[in-house]
Structure formats: structure tokens, C-alpha cells
Nucleic acid binder design. Structure first.
Lengths: 240, 240
DNA sequence: TCAATAGTGTCTTTTAGACATTATATG
DNA sequence: CATATAATGTCTAAAAGACACTATTGA
């Protein structure tokens, strides 16, 4: 808690405090995470999450937003929350670094982020989970935790709207759930659930233009005032 | 993420890293939190959570367990998890301290913890929430977050058993839910729910002795293998 | 016997899931 | 017209909630 409470200062040193952000988005039915090239030695060929050290006078959320802003192309972060803190003594071989992991959502980026600084790229979360893409430090663990948190939180919070532009169609929203959960959802039951959950989405009264292959125009919605979903949107087949 | 990635070291200093633990327990239908007297200046009359600085070579979970062990009487911590990290630059007026909050559960202590070091006491969480008991630093915020997390997690994880001795009766378990959620539960529906949720509790085949006023002996149970509750134990009346 | 606590049964309402059907667009 | 996508309707099964009732103990 406080700096001076425990008096055996011999074993008590300070640590560097960093944040690492797992920014998730959905494009083409796939869940993506934003990665960049680290410049630390020994990380050749690997990728890392955006992040770095927290400034002296800066709080943790602001630091997370700063690192997202430094990566061009991430103009709107619709959701940002703490994930957990990683404090193994040797997680960074060079020094004791305590990293606060963050989870963020952003609507689908039409183009990859700009390249002012290090090389950046959206990568399918699947490719991180199965080690097709290698991450430096313990960042694969952070992505794993981010995915687990995102999957759980979509169930009882109206956060899926943070992945889509507003207004959106119910098909857009369903694509978010399907990408994050990795399961197909029944269209009819999904829309009954969403529209009957109080405050989840609000009908705007407008309709979207159909795609070039035709199809009935879809009604457009925007996020409602609900902070929690009642009843929850439970993902299918989560036994044990 | 890494110590050296961002090169503007002018604004980058280290911070003290601490842990603070909100240890919850249930006694006499009430949810309690373990507090102690801080020795920092300016905290006279206040209480604080057990905690302090993390050692150089120690991970965060171990530090949390160490501070619980230092408070006598907390021999068995049945559950320990990270809550979130508190990093406002001025949360401790003396120095930059980044505190990792923890949430822990323990079975009902028959007697208050022993007093080797600072004065310690179990206090009703209600009294912290309504400021009857004043906490130092931002520890009231940590208790608030701990309560919210505990309430949510009892819904979909079999953690209520961490609050009771094993084996336990279904009335014991119901008392935990009622104390944490602050609502009465229907006995018949509760037991149907608990016993029909696969892997939540296992019947031991033994029975408890009735209290001195009589009453039918209760069957005894122990925790089952389930990691999640399906379907969840939803707390009543959580609209919006 | 009564009071106290444990445990069961039953009925109603709500919600989930499967899946057939209708509606409105493009070519 | 056919094809594509959106939206509704219907039936069944599972779960939640209210609450009456039975069971087993001590005093």
C-alpha cells in the first residue's frame, strides 16, 4: 500500500512500471489484435503489444491511451479496461518490470494503422493462440487473458457495440459475437435476444442500403443506455 | 512492457510496487473484511488493508500471501485473485506507489486474528461502504471493487465454498450467498439449483448434528470439481 | 406435544434453442 | 423469375420463482 510502511528497505527496491495494451477489433469475421515490432534486443522476428513505461506524473489509463495514440490509425478506442498486472520477477530479463495489462476495443479499421514509428499490424488472435505468430516477453499470456476476458464480458455487458461503427445492423453485432466467441449463432434467436434485452440497442428508424447482391435492407441501431445485460447473452456450449 | 523500449528516460522513473489485500469472510450472516491499523503519519483513527511493498525477488501473489500470513489468524486462504492495480500518481502523498489490489476469501474465523504486530480487526463491509469505518489512502475504493468482484464471481464460479469449512451444509452455503449479495434466497429453489448444477457440491453421505433448539440433521457436502457453474447462480433483482 | 430446521413437490412464468416461414431488396 | 439478406412466427425444452407440504430432530 504505502511506500514506508514496511521498514526492511534492504529487500525493497523500486520497479519500472509499464502498460501493455491488447487492442482487439473484428474484421471479416475474424478477431484481430494490434501488434508492433519491439526494438528490444533478443526479440528479432517476434511481435509485441503496444506499450511501454508509465510516466512519473501519469496515471495508468492515460499511459495506455498514450501508447495507443502513438500507434497511428487508432483514433477511437471505444472501450479500455484493466486486465491484470504481470509481476513475475524475471518476466523481463533485463530489469524488474511490473506490467499492467489493458484490454481495448475499437471498431473495424478499414486500413492498417499508419507507420510513423515501429511497424504495426493487425494479426488474427487465433494465430497468436496457436503460436503461428510469436510474441516477445509474456505478451502471449496477455493476449490469452484478453481473449478470455473479452469472451466473458460480452456475455453480461453491452460491449459488443464497441467493435462496430454506429449506427449498426444486428448482423454487424452478431458478427462480433461470432468472431469473439468463435461459434455461429442462430440469427432469429440472436435478434430476439438483443431486441428484448432492455437498453441494449435502440432502433434508429433508418435502414441500411443492401449489398450489391441484393437483400432486404437492414434496420439500423445504436447503443442503448444499459450498463449490464439482463438476462445475459450466454455463449453456447460452455459446459464445465 | 519492457524497461528500455521508450528512450525518453527523463520522465521515466521507477515506482514503489505494493500489494493490498481485501480478505473477506462471512460470520453471523454478515460479510466482513480484515483491517489493520496503518502506521503511516496522517492516518490516525483510520484503518487500512493488510499489505505493503513487494520484495525484489518476489512475485505479486507471493507478496499478497506474505502479508496475509503476517497478520496472525489467517491460516487458510481458500481463494486469492488479483483485483486491479491502482496507479494514480498521488494516491499516496509521500511517493509514487503503484498498488496491486487482491481479493481473498477465508472460512469464518472463530476468533479475531492474533495481535503480533499492528492491531487487526474484522469489520463489516457495510460499515466500510457507508463510511462508518474510515480507511486510509484509497483503500475504501479497493474494498468497493472487492465487493463488486465477489458479488459477480459467486454467480458463475463455485467460490462460495471458500467461505465455509468443509464439509458444509447447504444452509451454510446459502448464508454465504445471502451475506455477499445482501438478499434473502428461497431455500427450496437454492438447494434445487445447487444440487442440480453439475460438479458444484458433492454429497458426503454424512449428516451434521442439529443445533441445541432441535431441527432435522442436515446433509453434509464438500466442493465438487466444477470450475464454472452451469447454469450460473444469478443474484435476484439486478436489473439495469 | 411444539418449535426449529431440513428437504420435497408442484405449478406458473420466463428464457433458450431449433427451425419453418415471410418480407424486401438486386440482377 | 432466382438469389440474397432481413425479419417474424411457432413449437419444445429448460430453467427460475413462488410457495405448499413433508421429515426429523430437541425440549
Amino acid at each position: 500500500m504505502d511506500d514506508a510502511r514496511n521498514p526492511q528497505t534492504a529487500r525493497l527496491s523500486s520497479a519500472a512500471v509499464a502498460v501493455d495494451v491488447a487492442l482487439l477489433t473484428v474484421r471479416d469475421e475474424r478477431l484481430l489484435v494490434l501488434l508492433q515490432r519491439p526494438d528490444a534486443p533478443g526479440t528479432e522476428g517476434l511481435w509485441s503489444l503496444p506499450g511501454g513505461r508509465v510516466h512519473d506524473d501519469e496515471n495508468l489509463d492515460d499511459a495506455a491511451r498514450r501508447f495507443l495514440a502513438e500507434v497511428g490509425g487508432v483514433e477511437r478506442t471505444e472501450h479500455l479496461e484493466q486486465l491484470r498486472t504481470y509481476g513475475e520477477p524475471n518476466r523481463d530479463p533485463r530489469a524488474r518490470v511490473v506490467a499492467v495489462g489493458y484490454l481495448a476495443f475499437t471498431p473495424t479499421p478499414d486500413e492498417p494503422p499508419r507507420l510513423d514509428g515501429p511497424e504495426t499490424r493487425y494479426v488474427a488472435v487465433d494465430e497468436v493462440m496457436d503460436d503461428t505468430v510469436g510474441l516477445a516477453f509474456d505478451h502471449d499470456r496477455i493476449v490469452r487473458d484478453a481473449l478470455e476476458r473479452a469472451r466473458a464480458k460480452l456475455e453480461y455487458r453491452p460491449l459488443a457495440t464497441a467493435f462496430v461503427e454506429h449506427p449498426f445492423t444486428l448482423a454487424d453485432l452478431r458478427a462480433v459475437y461470432e468472431a469473439v466467441w468463435g461459434v455461429p449463432l442462430d440469427n432469429a434467436n440472436f435478434r430476439r435476444k438483443v431486441t428484448s434485452t432492455p437498453g441494449f440497442v435502440l432502433a434508429t428508424g433508418t435502414k441500411s442500403a443492401p449489398g450489391r447482391g441484393g437483400g432486404r435492407p437492414a434496420s439500423l441501431y445504436e447503443p442503448g443506455p444499459a450498463q449490464r445485460l439482463h438476462p445475459a447473452m450466454l455463449q453456447p456450449g460452455r459446459e464445465t
